[in-house]
Design a protein around this nucleic acid. Structure first.
Lengths: 113, 113
DNA sequence: GAGATGTGCAACTGATGAGTTGCGTGTGGT
DNA sequence: ACCACACGCAACTCATCAGTTGCACATCTC
């Protein structure tokens, strides 16, 4: 019953996780083991971060043989942008302008609660 | 030396804080005491949340006599949107489209780091 | 100036998160 | 079959955060 936004922003709140996302986006999918080599972290630590990102739907695990390759998933980011625009709507002209232009596409922008 | 994005997304990660923001945006500035009446929280708890929001630059305290009125500040939200778009750029055409349309206006979109 | 109201500071508890280490299990190559 | 590698699970530490309570200080009103 927890708001997906919690997981989303929560995942984004950690610099390591943001870095992981950037890394996955720019250099493509990778396994936790590989990632742990590029970051000053244990494989297990990386795994935990990836789990947090997965819970937020920002990353998807894909098994290939004995490896598990993680791929970045953009969808949730749109939801985040959506909330930000909703929250800012009719608040400040700048944000309002943003909203107007993006609007239609931001799609599932409107949320419950 | 901590990234401002940490505070920003960190503040956004808590549902209570998001609710506080919505409340401040929709019904305008208010004091912690007033807010604590609208939420199932102690005044002190509200104060702490407001401090987190202030650290993220999303809220600004304004003293008026013996009261302290908190006003929502939109600026940082643009920064958040900026990061999301930057992160998603050249990644997925949907996000890419968003970026293209917002781009110029999002202004201070491109951030340090 | 006295009382009421609003804010600020500090200490404390309980829960959650980051990170680690150790060990077990599965999968691929030879 | 065997060995190496990649993953998964579990327990543990350390820090941070949400929320509380209690009390002191400032300010308005009469």
């Amino acid at each position: 019953m927890s708001d997906p936004l919690d997981d989303l922003f929560g995942a984004l709140a950690d610099p390591t996780r943001r870095a992981l996302m950037v890394r996955l986006v720019s250099k493509g999918p990778a396994t936790a083991t590989v990632l742990s080599a590029d970051f000053p972290l244990t494989r297990q630590a990386v795994v935990k971060h990836l789990q947090a990102l997965e819970a937020a739907g920002m990353v998807t695990p894909e098994r290939q043989g004995r490896e598990v390759r993680f791929r970045a998933d953009p969808e949730p980011l749109a939801a985040a942008v959506g909330w930000l625009l909703d929250a800012g709507a009719s608040w400040d002209r700048r944000i309002d302008r943003l909203r107007g232009r993006v609007g239609s596409r931001a799609g599932s922008t409107t949320r419950e609660h």
